[in-house]
Computed example of a mutant assay.
Amino acid sequence: MNFDLIKAVVELVRQFMEQNESKALYSNDIHGFTKWMNTCFRDNSELEDSTWIGKKSGRSSESVINTLLVRIVRYAKSYSRSIVVNSMFSSQDDFIYLISLNSLGSMSKMDLIRHNVHEKPAGMLVINRLINNGWVEQTVSDKDKRIKLIQITKKGLDILDKHMNEIRKASKVVTANLTHPEQMILIGILSKLDEFHYSVYRTDLDATDLLDKAYEKLN
């Protein structure tokens, strides 16, 4: 039995249910799921002949993808700065961590840091800042008294709610003029990349040989 295929199908169903819950564009049955699949994964053969600067001189598609991803991240950070300037947030990491806790619930410090793909020292600075501001608090796990969990406070929820419209605006601007089907395709592609890289990062965020680990996994 091909368990990898089953896992991939389950993940697609999860994405369909999650996206359709807010958009309600398709019926919540096999027919709706099939339509969603056809929309998201339509034939992209026309992309095979894509061109880019430097292609004729040998620049690889991998190089272009890396450059474009870096540029998009920088654009996103620029939009986020406007939120920080007009708020009590010290950086975009403040509201990103709060959103993580609000969406996923309480978790350990290291789980929160790993979820946001930070090195431990940088992540701890963010968490300590949130604790000092009273936006998050430490609690003891009911299952294991040795484990301390971080959870968002009422004050944290209030500050997040106060700026949520601006945060949503920044998210919308980053996705720019992508159509809904294009967004679905991009989610699938980025999720695949994230799954690969997170499997490497979660072992040791502070490792100096992450490149070698990722390369070994790739090959």
Score class of each variant (00 low, 15 high):
Thr34Ile: 10
Lys35Asp: 07
Thr39Cys: 05
Arg42Thr: 11
Asp43Thr: 11
Asp43Cys: 05
Asp43Glu: 05
Asp43Gly: 12
Asn44Cys: 08
Ser45Lys: 12
Ser45Pro: 05
Ser45Gly: 05
Glu46Ile: 10
Leu47Cys: 09
Glu48His: 11
Glu48Trp: 12
Asp49His: 09
Ser50Ile: 15
Thr51Cys: 04
Trp52Ser: 07
Gly54Met: 10
Lys56Ile: 09
Lys56Ser: 08
Lys56Met: 11
Ser57Cys: 01
Ser57Val: 03
Gly58Pro: 03
Gly58Cys: 13
Arg59Ile: 10
Arg59Phe: 07
Ser61His: 01
Glu62Gln: 12
Glu62Thr: 12
Glu62Leu: 09
Ser63Cys: 03
Ser63Gly: 05
Ser63Met: 13
Val64Asn: 00
Val64Thr: 06
Leu69Asp: 12
Val70Asp: 15
Arg71Asn: 12
Val73Ser: 15
Arg74Met: 12
Arg74Glu: 13
Arg74Thr: 10
Ala76Asp: 08
Lys77Ala: 14
Lys77Gly: 06
Lys77Cys: 11
Tyr79Asn: 05
Tyr79Glu: 14
Arg81Leu: 09
Arg81Phe: 04
Val84Arg: 02
Val85Gly: 06
Asn86Ile: 00
Asn86Leu: 01
Met88Asn: 14
Phe89Asp: 00
Gln92Tyr: 11
Asp93Cys: 01
Asp94Ile: 02
Ile96Cys: 14
Ile96His: 14
Tyr97Ile: 15
Ile99Met: 12
Ser100Met: 08
Leu101Tyr: 12
Leu104Pro: 00
Met107Val: 01
Ser108Phe: 00
Ser108Ala: 08
Met110Cys: 00
Leu112Met: 13
Leu112Ile: 00
Ile113Leu: 05
Arg114Asn: 13
His115Asp: 10
Asn116Pro: 06
His118Ala: 12
His118Phe: 14
Glu119Leu: 06
Glu119Cys: 03
Gly123Ile: 02
Gly123Phe: 00
Leu125Tyr: 03
Ile127Pro: 00
Asn132Val: 09
Asn132Ala: 05
Gly134Val: 04
Trp135Cys: 10
Trp135Arg: 05
Val136Ile: 01
Val140Asn: 11
Val140Met: 02
Val140Cys: 02
